[in-house]
Amino acid sequence: MIRKMLQSLGEYLLLMARTFQRPERMRMFLKQYYKEMMALGINSVGIVLLISLFIGAVICIQIKLNIQSAWMPSWVSGYTTREIMMLEFSSAIMCLILAGKVGSNIASEIGTMRITQQIDALDIMGVNSASYLILPKVAALVSFIPILVTFSVAAGIVGAYCTAYLANIITPADLTLGLQHSFTPWYFWMGVIKSLFFAFIIASVSSYYGYNVKGGSIEVGKASTSAVVSCSVLILFSDIFLTQLLS
């Protein structure tokens, strides 16, 4: 098992070495980069906003109903909601969700290209298939993830305000006070920095699984599942180290 893991690591590193090479044609790279930005980034905005909105609202309700008590300041719910959204949800948890959506998409797309010989066709033409296919995906996701993190934090706060204005669970004034209390900008940047690493993991690991598919459609499905599982595990492990490192 250890041997297999080391072999996979070696294959992954070799693939990355082929991926991070100067694109043969910058115009083709930019075309692919734009396409991937749309497919992986813009198309993920909706799900990120939706989930963040509801999670922001739910965190606020849970804190208000289960944690807040008479001896606690009134701003605790808002403060806790903000900190959870900025420190963990908008980076780590959102990237876990994206690993499912984007990771499986990348692995199945590249895997299908592999089994239908489209990657062989690129290689035969003399194109660096790894760089042509994977580099724009990694670049697009890594460069778009800060926008998704920002949208997620904002949507979470909007969700919290929904509980105040629509459900009257907390007063808007208390919520605003909590959201502004002891604000540390570094926490936001910490979430952004962590998400850059997670985005790299999602794009590169999923591409690795797709690129090395052998067989048919069943293997593409398995590669897609393996990509999501591996990305999730790697995100969770690296989250511990990054949190320790950046805190």
Binding site: Q117, Q118, D123
Partner: peptide, 13 residues
């Protein structure tokens, strides 16, 4: 050399 090669694959690719 591969730029001098054209290939037609079994499944068209």
């Amino acid at each position: 050399l591969r730029r001098e090669i054209g290939m037609l694959f079994q499944g068209s690719a």
